[in-house]
Design a protein around this nucleic acid. Structure first.
Lengths: 337, 337
DNA sequence: CTGTTAGCGCCTTCAT
DNA sequence: ATGAAGGCGCTAACAG
């Protein structure tokens, strides 16, 4: 039972192991008759080639690594879903490297592109810092960035979303509704992981406010860890201000939920007393009737895989830089004031 | 650049490769001086031993496989989170085999326990059918079942939750609140994946109803695919009945959300006009104020890893069978009628 | 303590 | 078209 080898098959079929290997790999250089017989034996023995041996011999790992921070967050899951679905039919195994500490982040970013653990690497939502550039550029495995970027990485394929524009769009929506005191609730703009989305969305917020000639009140920006409860706390503080904002833009739908909670606990009606807009359009957003900025999470993962597989095929391919569209989805948490 | 080998290190350090291997594996049979020197060179060359070669030589894959259906569902994610967190410090890679078709299910259940892809296997929420038993019993890799079971598998460690009891508890809660017309909205009780949870919860529902001497009206049981929208549809139908139920037990929190939607769209107030109870206590449940049955999702994953690692250590260990506790969490969607 | 050697199972030339 | 042999990089058992 315990795992027969290619040798057993060869012996039993009365052929050399080279032949077995050939039928295994679909080489045309084998007569239909022997192929038949070998396949027969393979079935009888219930033989499956040992992946470790295969990998060593091939000099390929036949696996794709995806480096993703906090993989259980809804937006990450959605990207992962796109990745998984696009990869399941391929010959590649998928290993998810979940990053929840900077140390782990550095380990992954350092080791994985070397290509000894994976033939290709996808980096999700972790923008490299300057120090990471060298490893990434001399990587022996193709690397594609999803929702991550760096000016020096024009050599890598990247699928990004314009968060500045998204933030701008969100804020503008509120402005068009007549809001002037607009808050922004986010996670830390500067953070050890170098997450850039909240920072970029803030830039968009800032731009939109300026364009509209509105005052940017620092008290209307709260930042803390990324969580519903922290967002709730920040929103509650902001809403307790003498002149509270009439609208809040949250850096993610999860955080928007925190804002909604704060409003609820302070007996503020949404959207009558407070407009709330989120970001991402995760599944729950629709249920909640949350107005938000939709980004193509699933599709970004899908696209990333496409690009990676393409790079794995013909390595001398031009890297592509794609900006995925972003869309305002108006639901029931925003209204004119 | 391109991956130096143990041989390069040996040469550069002026030692044999055996020695390098020894320091790599922390063997004590190396003098401090040479160890120092070798480590030095390893650092200089930025050397990392090739995992594929290591695995082949060791005869171990150094990876754990987890077979899980529809991995993006909140309850699955929560279990995976427990698994991932418990495994990240270990020497094992984690590969998630997402199952969304019966075919894939069979492939995974057939191949993975052979041990050529993984040293250990965790099966989540997929109860084996009779046909799977042989493979599982003669598996060369230890297998642990989480939220899955089969009477013939006493040889495997299993971490389960008593869904019959949970379903009973949920229904009883509604009964105690004075409800008599109690609906059950679920996914298919009989299904190709052999998911048992909704079936077992139904059994609990049935028991509780009978114990209370309440009529079990087939019209009060709706089944369809597992999704919020389908649950919504089922609930809407049920609530359109001349004698509509005054309370609905949903087989999962996700489905409970569908029920809430149905109620909302029919202008039924929850809990005044309709009580709703879910199952799982996923994160969103708290936000929604959903009354539900909590099961220890994260912990089940954690515990599964513990058991698997233990089995990987000393293989001749008694399998354990653990029933995780279940708990009624009363929030705001259930009330006396 | 340390260098050398023999595999691990498979793929891939190279002859035949 | 097929069999034989060498090697992928590493570990472990063996001499020294």
């Amino acid at each position: 039972m315990g795992s027969s080898t290619i040798r057993d098959v060869a012996k039993r079929a009365g052929v050399g192991l080279g032949t077995v290997s050939r039928v295994l790999n679909g080489s045309p250089m084998v007569s239909p008759a022997t192929r038949q017989r070998v396949m027969q034996v393979i079935a009888e023995l219930n033989f499956i080639p040992n992946p470790s041996a295969r990998r060593l011999s091939l000099g390929k790992t036949l696996t794709i690594a995806v480096i993703v921070p906090f993989f259980t967050r809804p937006a990450m899951i959605e990207r992962l879903r796109g990745i998984e679905h696009s990869l399941v039919e391929s010959e590649y195994d998928l290993i998810i490297y979940n990053v929840e500490t900077v140390q782990r982040r550095d380990e992954c970013l350092h080791e994985l592109p070397r290509g000894e653990r994976a033939d290709g690497v996808m980096v999700v939502s972790l923008s490299p810092r300057d120090a990471d550039i060298p490893q990434l550029l001399c990587a022996s495995a193709p690397v594609v960035l999803i929702d991550a970027n760096h000016p020096s990485l024009t050599a890598l394929s990247r699928v990004i979303v314009d968060d500045v524009q998204g933030g701008c769009m969100a804020t503008q929506h509120l402005i068009e509704l007549g809001h002037e005191r607009i808050g922004y609730v986010s996670d830390w703009l500067e953070n050890p992981f170098n997450f850039t989305s909240s920072r970029d969305r803030y830039k968009g917020y800032y731009q939109a406010m300026q364009n509209a000639g509105l005052e940017i009140n620092p008290q209307y920006h709260g930042q803390s860890d990324h969580s519903r409860s922290e967002a709730r706390r920040l929103a509650a503080e902001m809403l307790a201000l003498p002149e509270r904002p009439t609208a809040i833009f949250a850096a993610s739908d999860t955080q928007a939920m925190g804002v909604l909670e704060a409003a609820r606990s302070m007996r503020l009606r949404v959207p009558e007393d407070l407009s709330v807009i989120g970001y991402d359009d995760i599944e729950i957003a629709e249920y909640l009737g949350l107005t938000t900025i939709r980004q193509l999470l699933y599709e970004s993962g899908q696209r990333g895989v496409e690009l990676l597989l393409r790079a794995l095929g013909e390595s001398s391919l031009e890297p592509v830089f794609e900006v995925m569209p972003t869309e305002l989805v108006v639901r029931k948490t925003t209204a004119a004031r």
